[in-house]
């Protein structure tokens, strides 16, 4: 059965006034188009990554979908609502998290902030208790619920923020850099949680991040935004395949079998030899040929070919 389209963004443009210079003492402004007629659709249960360099318009896109900003042109429909009308029913169905902002009250225990959200989102007690228990277990923060936010480590605080964001079981969640500033372990825990909740509750999640691991591991679909335009919209794997140009090769060998093959390898590919090992990058399309040559040239002890990271690929696109 075809899944329902929950988000429809059609031809959306947004302008900001930016300072251009000064005339006498007064600043001069110019209108800059930060979103240039973007369109996309997102279906129920999708996990979409919004990628782009700083200032490309990804946070603006999220803010428009969350109802914080109103676009100058275009249509947006999320869950059948126009976001910026801010209907209460709509706001109850979405969750928003900005990695560098806090939803929780700094001086009170986490649970008291959650109790406040219980009233704001009009949750009944039974649901609230069960939900907090379940989410706290998944995020491994059961023991810190009674601790004031100011006493938490950054990683714990961020997980508590995520709990608050998912507390009312939102249908659509907008996450703006949820793993910013987190260490490897904390990011991993956050990723695992997001993956589980997306799978189990069919929550539609839209994520912007600079951390490519988040996208590689979480988002089946990626939207690339550059200068206010969507330059790619499709599956993350497809994106990798489309952009991938090289494979990273690593070879360890016991001895050389054939010197002329070795010469051919060293002359034809960007590889460096160091004692009994070889490292370098080879064109994606020549990986089979390269592999054959390696086994002809050396008595191989270990051999690996790795993909370019998404980060590297994106870097190339945006450069």
């Amino acid at each position: 059965m075809e899944k329902e389209e929950l988000i429809r963004v059609e031809n959306v443009s947004k302008y900001f006034n930016v300072p251009k210079g000064k005339f006498l003492m007064f600043p001069l402004w110019e209108k800059r188009e930060v979103l240039k007629g973007i369109s996309f659709k997102i279906k129920e249960g999708e996990f979409v990554g919004l990628l782009g360099p700083n200032g490309s318009g990804k946070t603006t896109t999220i803010k428009i979908m969350a109802g914080i900003l109103v676009p100058e042109k275009g249509k947006v429909d999320v869950l059948g609502y126009v976001p910026w009308k801010k209907e209460e029913e709509y706001l109850k169905k979405i969750g928003v998290l900005f990695g560098n902002r806090s939803n929780l009250m700094f001086d009170v225990p986490v649970i008291d902030s959650l109790l406040l959200f219980k009233e704001i989102y009009e949750l009944d007690k039974e649901f609230f208790d069960k939900r907090v228990e379940e989410l706290a277990r998944m995020l491994e923060i059961k023991d810190i619920l009674q601790t004031p936010v100011r006493k938490l480590s950054f990683g714990q605080r961020m997980r508590a923020e995520i709990l608050a964001c998912f507390l009312h079981k939102p249908k659509v969640v907008f996450l703006d850099e949820p793993t910013i500033g987190l260490d490897v372990i904390a990011s991993k825990k956050v990723r695992e949680f997001l993956k589980k909740i997306n799978r189990n509750e069919k929550t539609t999640i839209i994520l912007t991040t600079h951390n490519m691991r988040d996208v590689e591991r979480l988002c089946k679909r990626t939207l690339l935004i550059k200068d206010g335009k969507i330059i790619f919209d499709g599956s993350t794997n497809k994106l990798i395949k489309k952009l991938i140009k090289y494979k990273y090769a690593k070879v360890e060998f016991n001895s050389i079998r054939n010197k002329s093959y070795e010469k051919k390898i060293l002359e034809s590919y960007e590889v460096e030899k160091c004692n009994n090992s070889l490292v370098g990058r080879i064109p994606y399309k020549e990986q089979v040929k390269f592999t054959e040559l390696i086994f002809k040239a050396y008595d191989v002890k270990a051999f690996s070919l790795e993909d370019q990271s998404l980060e590297e690929l994106i870097e190339e696109v945006f450069e």
Partner: peptide, 19 residues
């Protein structure tokens, strides 16, 4: 940005701020 976050809650942001 912090006010923006309050706007996404189903409650008047001024009441939230005073709260």
């Amino acid at each position: 940005g912090n006010l923006a976050l309050m706007i996404t809650k189903p409650i008047n942001p001024l009441i939230y701020l005073h709260g």
